[in-house]
Structures are given as structure tokens and as C-alpha cells.
Design a protein around this nucleic acid. Sequence first.
DNA 1: ATTAGGG
DNA 2: CCCTAAT
Length: 488
Amino acid sequence: MVKKDESCVSALEDEAIEVEHLLAEPKNEHVSVDGVLSFGEESLEKCFQIEDFSCGFGFGLALNNGCLDSNTTQEGEDLQLEVLDGLLDELDEVDDLDATNGLSGACDCEDFLLDIEFAEKKLDSGPSEATCLGNSSSESPSPGLSGSCNGAVGISESSTATILESECKNDVLDKIVTCKLHGGFMSKCGCQPPAEDGIHMASIELRKLNDLDHDENLLACGILSTGTGKRSLEVSRIDEFLREKRLRKPTRRYIEESSSKKSGYLKGREKYPVASTKDTSLKVKSCNELHNTGRRASTVIHEEKSLCGIRVRRGRPKKLVPQSGLDSDKEPLSSESEDNCATKKKSKHDRRKHQRMWTPSEVIKLVDGISEYGVGRWTDIKRLLFSTSAYRTPIDLRDKWRNLLRASGAEKPNKKGVEQKQEHSLRPLPSSLLRRVRELAKIHPYPRVRISKKSCIGQVVPAMHPGACKGAPPSSLSGRSVRRKNIT
DNA sequence: ATTAGGG
DNA sequence: CCCTAAT
């Protein structure tokens, strides 16, 4: 036990942080879940605060995860993923099944599912477990939670012990879960820790009520999902709801379902958690979705950070100060749309946020620059001719050039000769420009000379002439650089 | 840090 | 436009 806690503590920080992200994900996933997750976060924070003490159990996902991880060194990861996955799934499906229990469902679920996991492990490893559960629970003296924890402790301890003796695993789990659940509940609701009697009674009541709360739950969900946009409000609702729910104990079937669900199909998709953990773009997306939902002001801040970080667009800002003037025909502004984190709303499509049309004058400048400095000297061109255009990066110039080539048809006269469709060109370039582009294209074959590649490939396939094609047909590498050299 | 390529 | 790999 002791060691467990230690490891837990040590791992707690990292894990927790990670978890935080993960938690952030689902938040966006489901409106109704919103509140619940928020709770999770709160719990998390508390966890941090009490880090010194130990990792409690029923506190929240974060903690639980930490513990689990530390417990199961090897499958720790998997486990975590699974758990989280489960969580996510749970959230995902708030609409169906138990999730109707929605708020409480999801949140309790996490807790007790986790606990189940934990319990299982414990059971497997041996008899000393019972105390473990108790200890860890009691050791988590978080200010607001301590009470409930204590309350739960008693039960979990006793029940666990008993059952262990009787070797009735399922029951044990059930009980533990139940207890845990209560603990979690209370802590979340900030309610007074009921006496053991109270718990007992509550459990019973829960059982009874469980069958009829569907409508109720639905209602509650509805409230939440149609929510008012104030998170606090939501929270209070949830709180209320939870309070109400608090008296209800999940039926055994419910628990079983949940557990099976978790262990079952959860395995299949671990991608979710993983992705969400690292994939920032994903996060952003969610964030956007979130915004679309139009609610939640407080959580946004959290997101904003990431958003801003990402949004700023690769190193562009650092270069030069936004100038507005430059080309006469340029779009007026260059400064406004940029990186206001505040402009999130519009960031619906993260990608391609700032599109700036290339004006003819720009194109001309580009062409001039290319003809002057040569293809490939994009930074130079940018520096010399586009120094005022903060938004045009060398890469952009290059891209534009590529597009020009394409548009001018100078690029690879396709095999069949069916190309050069300028036909669908929205903004046909001035013929003069076109001419120039073509000429330039002739002079500097930027586009990796398909020619060589083509010819190379064509001949290479069979046997390839070493001399002719320069050797490596597949990798454009050799061909590329070589070509370039020749040209220059 | 720049480029080339690909998406 | 954006992203990644290669230089």
C-alpha cells in the first residue's frame, strides 16, 4: 500500500497533467457532460493541492489514473488509455443507455469504473487489499472531500474485507463500487458526508429510484444540454441534480453494464485518448466546436491558450511588423485579422485562416524577383521584394510560384497533353504575366523536372540506364538536387 | 533556417 | 495555406 501511494504521488503530477488534457477533450465532446468534467478538473486541482498527502481514490479521474498507473507499471499505459477511453465513450454516449443518467452517470461512472479496475487489481494481488482501499481513501484528506471520504472509507473497508473472505469477487466489486461512488458523489456535491447508516439507506433508496429516474434524467440532461451558457449555472444545475441523484445507487445491472462496456469495446479504440493527448489541432477543433455551442465562458480560457499558441501560424509574426501600405492594390489590412485569440470564433477552420489573395502586383513582383534572383531564392525575394508584406512568407512565394507554373501550363506538359487547363481559372492572369512565367519556367525549371523523373521512371522500371537517369528514380532526392545544379 | 514536396 | 522531411 505504502509503496503504491508513493509511486502514485510521484507519478501523480505528470499523469495528472496528461489527464488534464484528456479531460479537456471530452469536455468539448458533449455539452451535457460539460459540467461533469468540470468537476473532474476541480478534483484534479484538489489533488494537486493535497499532493503531499497521497493520492486519494474517489477524488477524480486524475487521481485514479495516477494510482492505477503506478499500480500497473506495465499495462499502466493501456490501462490508462482504456480508462480514459471508457470515459470518453461514456461521454460519447451520454445519449444512450445509462448515460441518460448523464451527468451523474458519466461522472460516477468514471469513478467507480476506475475503482473497479482498481479493485480487480487488488483482488488479484492478494488479501491485503481491503485495507488498501480503506487506507488510500482515508488518506486523502482534501479539505472538502475528507468528510465524504471518511464516510466511504468505513464501508469500503468493511465490505471489502467481508467479501474478500467470501471470495465473491463480483459482490466485492459491486460493493466497493457503491461505496466509492458515494464517496465520489459526496465529494463532488460538496454534501455532508452521511453517516454510514445514511449511506446505507441512500443506497437502498437509490436502488428503488433507479428504475424511475429515466424521465427525470432525461429532463435533467435536456436542461443541461440546452443549457444557458453560463457554466456556473450549469454547475449548479448539475449540483442540484447530483444532489438529487446522490440518493440513488446505481443498480447492479447498471454497474455491470458499465464495467462490461468499459472492458469490452473500450479496448478497440485507444486512438482517441492518444490522439487527444497530443494532437493539438484536434484540440483546437474541439475548441471550436465548443465555441459553436456557444456556452461556457470559464473553460474557454484554458483552451485559449492552446489556441493562441497554435493559431499564431508558424513563425510568421516574429519577422516583421505589420505594415499596411505596401502595394496599392493589396488588401487593406494586414494587421487586423491576425492572431487575436479573441477572433477564435472565426477560427472555425483552423487551417487556412488567413488567406490572402495574391494581387497582380504581387504576382508581378514575384515574377520579377524570380527572374532576378532565380528560382529557389525565396527568402531573398521575400526579403527584397516583399519585405513589406508581412504575410507573405518565402514559402508562400514559392507556393505561389508553383501555382503560377501550374496555371501557366509551363509545368510538365503532361503525357497526354490534356492539360494546361486554364479554363477554369477564376482569375486569369494577364497574358503578359503568363508569358513571363512561362519564360521563367523555361529558364529555371523549378518544379522538380517531372521530365527527368518521368523519363527516369519510365525507363527505370525495366532496367534503367544508370547514366541517363542518374540512378535513383524513386527518391526525388538525387534527381532534384542535381537538376537544380545543372540549371543554376 | 531554408527548401522542396506533398496535402 | 499548411505540414513535414531533407538539407
